[in-house]
Design a protein around this nucleic acid. Structure first.
Ligand SMILES: [Mn+2]
Ligand SMILES: [Mn+2]
Ligand SMILES: [Zn+2]
Ligand SMILES: [Zn+2]
Lengths: 137, 137
DNA sequence: CCTAAAAACGCAATTCCATTGCACGTTTTA
DNA sequence: TAAAACGTGCAATGGAATTGCGTTTTTAGG
């Protein structure tokens, strides 16, 4: 329970404040990636900036990673075991055009990409848009 | 010269106004994708909104396509011969962390990607970040 | 336990980019 | 040539990210 969450934070050198524990707990429950706005809706009393900085801290400490799904709002999802958020998450992200949920697909790795001579890759982001499993009737 | 540009626009059913010809000409000169801000800097006298709508029209008519490179500002690049901007450009885009230029790599196609059961892909975007050929000393 | 320093937090304000509304001049079309 | 459609310019708005700063809470040293 709460202890587990605390440990998880401390392992990443993040001090376990009340807000952070709540945010972490929320993130763990999600099946889809969440935006800052989503968190604001979840915690109506919490301050937007505090949530913002919580996410920023989580990301800096490698607890979560961010996803650009083309909606304009950045989404966040927990890193998995062995999630290499550097050279960066090399797994696929999926945006559902129907329910507009964004999914992390950590089991689906990005295939090797060939580039022109002289271009040195450091990070790769692959976003697939389509219809998710919940929306394919 | 100008005639070529006019033809290019008319072939896509875009009326060749002075502004549009200038923007098209500028786009043709670029080696990297350009942002709205870039165009504003190029044409200091032109109105931001006019440039915005010019890009929007160009995109709707399939003259250019947009690129999200994670900088927050959308970039635009001319479509190539046979550029399938629907089901969407399936070619690779490259963002240089050094010079911060964004490149269209129309010759480098996005490899087929496997997805979990029930996920139906419709469009795929692949962004590689790293160091471009101009910046690899 | 007490205190100074560090870390979080809350609120206001700003920045940046995208987008819309509307009036007006120009081009197209019947 | 008059109405309609289109393009343009300017003002204003919207959404998201980010910063500044004073206040509160937590941590660490004595
Ligand atoms: Mn992910
Ligand atoms: Mn491209
Ligand atoms: Zn869905
Ligand atoms: Zn470069």
């Amino acid at each position: 329970m709460m202890k587990e969450l605390e440990n998880k934070l401390e392992q990443k050198e993040v001090r376990p404040t009340a807000m952070r524990l709540l945010v972490l707990e929320t993130l763990q429950k999600q099946k889809a990636a969440v935006s800052l706005q989503d968190l604001e809706d979840t915690f109506e009393k919490a301050d937007r900036v505090t949530l913002y900085r919580t996410l920023k801290t989580f990301q800096e400490k490698g607890l979560i990673h961010s996803i650009e799904d083309g909606t304009g709002a950045t989404k966040y999802a927990l890193c998995q075991e062995g999630c290499e958020c550097a050279p960066e998450d090399m797994h696929v992200h999926f945006f559902c055009n129907s329910c507009e949920d964004t999914f992390c697909l950590p089991k689906f790795k990005i295939p090797e990409v060939s580039l022109p001579e002289g271009f040195v890759p450091m990070e790769t982001n692959l976003l697939v848009k389509g219809v998710c499993v919940n929306c394919t009737a």
